[in-house]
């Protein structure tokens, strides 16, 4: 049986999948995380990982076409922040391959480092996706500060 951590605080938002909203998404999650008094480094890591996930929704999930991004952030017991970032876009055929460093299908100037950066800057990364069904990225990060419960 899975040991589920109790949710202490949470917020949800849905926003248009437009590149201009990337900064808003990471700022919103950052403001929520700031309630836990994270270090500057923890906050920067989290905002970077969120920015990568949101950009993936826009560039890969919706291929720069209109859509919505759903963000569900929760503070769990034990000072763990969990952020789910979901799109209803085209999905990923081969998740393992997509998570390889430098792999990209977008071409242009995408570095192919999105998932690598998410993995490097969080404590855990889970990706659930299927072609035509969209993608859910779940990030968790433990915060060393004191959270108000």
């Amino acid at each position: 049986m899975r040991n589920r951590k109790k949710t202490i605080n949470d917020f949800k938002m849905a926003i248009a999948a437009r590149s201009v909203n990337e900064s808003f998404c990471r700022a919103a999650v950052g403001a929520f995380a700031a309630l836990c008094d994270p270090t500057v480094e923890e906050l920067s890591d989290l905002k970077t990982a969120v920015s990568e996930a949101v950009t993936n929704c826009i560039v890969h999930g919706y291929r720069e076409k209109p859509g919505r991004i759903y963000i569900d952030a929760a503070l769990l017991e034990g000072n763990v922040l969990r952020v789910k970032i979901r799109d209803k876009g085209c999905g990923i055929e081969d998740v393992s391959r997509a998570m390889e460093p430098l792999f990209t299908t977008a071409g242009g100037e995408r570095s192919g480092l999105g998932f690598t950066v998410m993995e490097s800057f969080t404590d855990s990364l889970k990706v659930r996706s299927a072609p035509g069904k969209g993608t859910v990225v779940t990030l968790t990060k433990k915060i060393t500060g004191k959270c108000d419960g």
């Binding site: 920067s44 970077t48 920015s51 100037e109 570095s111």
Partner: peptide, 12 residues
């Protein structure tokens, strides 16, 4: 602030 788009910018 910079995410991997900055890496892409430099690589380009």
């Amino acid at each position: 602030f910079m995410d991997s788009s900055g890496v892409g910018l430099a690589l380009g």
